[in-house]
Amino acid sequence: MSASLPPERVRVTGAATALIEELRAQHGPLLFHQSGGCCDGSSPMCYPQDDFIVGDRDVLLGEVAGAPFYMSPSQYEYWKHTQLTLDVVPGQGGMFSLDNGTGTRFHIRSRLFTDDEVAALQAAGRF
């Protein structure tokens, strides 16, 4: 990463990309939302773009395999110091998430940004 370019806030693994492409073929354009809270809300949820209304204050973190990834403002405040990686693991997806019933579910891995990365995000007005 160049000192002048901010890091990506959200990334995606090859396994997650494959599942996204499979779901997109079935459902059309997708989006992700992570709201926080308990139960399904603490997992990244995948929806058809036309079936989910993004809140006025939701934060767009970036795109994963061509799908926008949003986070609720309260969750963003908690996670803004981290880079997220969307992955898949065996299991059952959230009740309303499109990964439900696939035998895998979307999963977030994270790492803290370095001081230099935070400075680059701040300089770009993205922190």
Rank of each mutant, 00 (worst) to 15 (best):
R111S: 10
S72V: 08
G94M: 03
S74P: 09
F106T: 04
F106V: 05
Y78I: 13
G41L: 09
P90G: 14
L86Y: 01
N100C: 06
P44M: 11
D116Q: 10
A120Y: 00
D51G: 10
H33W: 15
C46R: 05
I108D: 03
V118K: 11
Y76P: 02
F96A: 10
S42M: 12
V64A: 01
G41E: 09
D99P: 05
M71F: 06
E77I: 09
R111Y: 10
E117T: 01
M45G: 10
C46P: 01
I53C: 14
I108G: 01
F96S: 15
L86F: 01
V64C: 04
P68D: 05
A65Q: 02
L30H: 03
M45A: 10
T104D: 14
V89K: 14
L86C: 01
G91A: 04
D40M: 04
L60C: 08
T104G: 10
H107G: 03
M95F: 15
S43E: 12
E117H: 01
H107N: 12
C38M: 14
F32C: 05
Y78G: 11
E63H: 05
C38L: 11
V54D: 15
D58R: 08
G101H: 04
F113P: 00
P68N: 05
F52E: 10
W79R: 14
G36P: 04
D99W: 03
M95V: 14
T104W: 13
G103Q: 06
S72N: 09
V88H: 00
A119W: 00
G37L: 07
D87S: 14
S35W: 08
V64P: 00
G55D: 13
Q122N: 07
G37H: 05
T114S: 11
C39S: 15
C39V: 11
F96D: 14
Q122V: 08
F32L: 02
R109F: 15
S110L: 12
D56C: 13
G41W: 04
H81R: 11
G55E: 14
V64K: 00
G62S: 02
G93V: 00
V64S: 00
A65K: 05
V59N: 06
R111N: 10
Q92R: 09
Y70I: 04
T85E: 12
Q83R: 10
Y47I: 11
G66C: 06
M71L: 08
L60T: 07
Q122I: 08
Y76F: 14
H33A: 11
R109A: 13
L30F: 09
